[in-house]
């Protein structure tokens, strides 16, 4: 059985459901927008602060949006049937992770444009480098997030548990992305942060799908 086709089917299904319902992107977009506006007012809208504001907004938006991708299966009473399809649960993981990556990427692009307008950040000149950082950050958030969303699926108070689990685990991603974005925008050296981000992503990509299978076996 072709795992890639199964993962693609899950991703396409999740994105179609999201496109028609627009629940996750609306919620995450609103949170991110409010955070950017609020932090912009509080700490000032100098370009130097844009990196931290961008990734803090992304982090909180991810906390809100990530659980919805898997929770939708429970709300639709479709989880049991999904788990009874033959084939590795890893395919489900990669499908859900891919859908989440697309959603967070769309959000990041919108936020970068917003930063360009509100903070006077020259997004266009640094477009390539910022996309590179975005890819590293979003892959890390999506991979960890997909696992945690499955972990808290049947937990009461998961809205509280999700940030408690995701924010500490994703701290290297958020911190790394802030430092790298800062370095790109100010033209300073990035130090070891690219290596930290890449290492985090590689370890997450290797470990999380295996843990997802274990978690789904207990659902």
């Amino acid at each position: 059985m072709n795992g890639f086709l199964r993962a693609a089917a899950v991703a396409r299904k999740d994105l179609r459901v999201e496109w028609r319902g627009r629940q996750t992107i609306t919620a995450t977009g609103m949170v991110a927008l409010l955070m950017i506006l609020l932090l912009g007012f509080v700490v000032g809208s100098e370009p130097a602060r844009a990196a931290a504001i961008l990734w803090v907004a992304m982090g909180f938006a991810a906390v809100l949006g990530i659980p919805r991708v898997t929770q939708g299966e429970v709300d639709q009473q479709a989880l049991e049937i999904l788990l009874l399809y033959p084939g590795s649960r890893e395919h489900l993981f990669w499908g859900k992770c891919a859908a989440l990556t697309v959603m967070l990427s769309a959000l990041l692009v919108a936020l970068l444009v917003l930063l360009g307008v509100l903070f006077g950040v020259d997004v266009w000149d640094h477009g390539g480098a910022l996309v590179g950082v975005g890819v590293l950050g979003i892959v890390g958030l999506s991979v960890i997030g997909t696992l945690l969303a499955a972990l808290v699926l049947h937990v009461r108070g998961r809205e509280l548990l999700m940030p408690l689990l995701l924010l500490p685990l994703a701290l290297p991603v958020v911190l790394g992305c802030v430092r790298l974005t800062e370095a790109i925008l100010t033209g300073t050296a990035a130090g070891l942060w690219p290596a930290v981000l890449v290492s985090f992503d590689v370890v997450s990509v290797l470990v999380c799908p295996i843990l997802f299978e274990v978690v789904m076996d207990e659902v």
């Binding site: 299904k13 179609r16 459901v17 639709q76 479709a78 049991e80």
Partner: peptide, 11 residues
């Protein structure tokens, strides 16, 4: 085939 259809409402 369980008591719920296991289908997605928006599809």
């Amino acid at each position: 085939v369980g008591t719920s259809a296991g289908a997605y409402d928006l599809l």
